[in-house]
């Protein structure tokens, strides 16, 4: 087993250049949307809009304007699969297509996936989408082929500001904690790490340094992002209870009818 690796993304130094998106497209040979004619979103300077089957990296532009538009604040965050420690997609995948690699990343084996889309219902980050061409689930592979050859993932390699950092998880966490300490020392007390501890799905191997609450970035809180298996037993117990109510009701009802027929016909009841 190789050392667990991950991404540490420092959103305070992201400049929204989208070099990570381009590098991801290029290395993974992802096709362009709409045959290359990407329409303007009309809502933002960001025209990628969201992660999709062909956009495994997406630099979110969070544009905050005052009502009179004299004040503006932009937050930027390069979004990607979080390669969760307790990955919901991996947990529910019924074909065994989604696996954990020797690098502790989460990977979809394309020849196994049959496009059932259960992983999409499970992912709390909206990461996975079905390919319009291959008709199977698609997401960031963490450049598994590059990792196997000792290379840095394409997005981290291309990032010009080192907003996206790649490395062993333990080392990245220390680096991130040091950076939070530095920002706090500079008066930016709102800086914090999202997903670096075990509160969200046991930890995210792609974790973030954020300046605003998770919901500002369109990220779920620790309460909102849950492992699917947490509700299987409670839901099953309730379904079993309903089954017992129906079975017991039928037992009583059939018995009552048999007794009524027996009384009407004045004999011991019809035989089977």
């Amino acid at each position: 087993m190789a050392e667990p690796v991950g991404f540490y993304t420092d959103t305070t130094v992201c400049i929204g250049c989208k070099a990570c998106e381009v590098a991801c497209h290029q290395w993974n040979a992802l096709p362009a949307r709409n045959g290359g004619e990407v329409p303007l979103s009309g809502l933002s300077y960001d025209n990628t809009v969201a992660l999709s089957d062909v956009d495994w990296r997406h630099v979110k532009f969070i544009e905050q304007f005052s009502a009179d538009r004299t004040q503006a604040r932009w937050l930027m965050m390069s979004d990607v699969c979080k390669h969760c420690v307790n990955a919901p997609c991996l947990e529910v995948c019924p074909t065994g297509s989604i696996v954990r690699t020797e690098f502790d990343t989460v990977y979809i084996q394309e020849p196994v996936c049959n496009g059932c889309r259960d992983c999409i219902t499970a992912c709390p980050f909206g990461v996975i989408h079905v390919s319009a061409e291959k008709h199977i689930a698609q997401k960031c592979t963490f450049c598994y082929d590059r990792l196997q050859n000792g290379l840095v993932p394409a997005c981290a390699q291309a990032c010009p500001t080192r907003s996206i950092q790649f490395g062993p998880i333990a080392e990245l966490k220390q680096r991130a904690l040091d950076r939070v300490g530095q920002l706090h020392g500079q008066g930016a007390s709102e800086a914090y790490l999202y997903g670096a501890d075990t509160k969200i799905l046991g930890g995210l191997n792609a974790f973030y340094l954020l300046m605003d609450p998770p919901e500002t970035y369109g990220l779920p809180t620790a309460v909102q992002a849950q492992v699917p298996s947490r509700s299987v037993w409670p839901a099953s117990v309730k379904a079993i209870a309903a089954s017992l109510v129906i079975a017991f009701g039928a037992f009583v009802s059939f018995g009552r009818r048999k007794r009524a027929v027996a009384m009407t016909e004045g004999r011991g009841g019809p035989s089977r």
Partner: peptide, 23 residues
């Protein structure tokens, strides 16, 4: 009943907020 349990076991809004859909 399992179809309801299937909806519950995920992270979709509403489905994942109740465990009574199966019943």
């Amino acid at each position: 009943s399992y179809t309801g349990v299937l909806l519950t076991a995920g992270n979709q809004p509403v489905w994942s907020n109740t465990t009574w859909i199966g019943a």
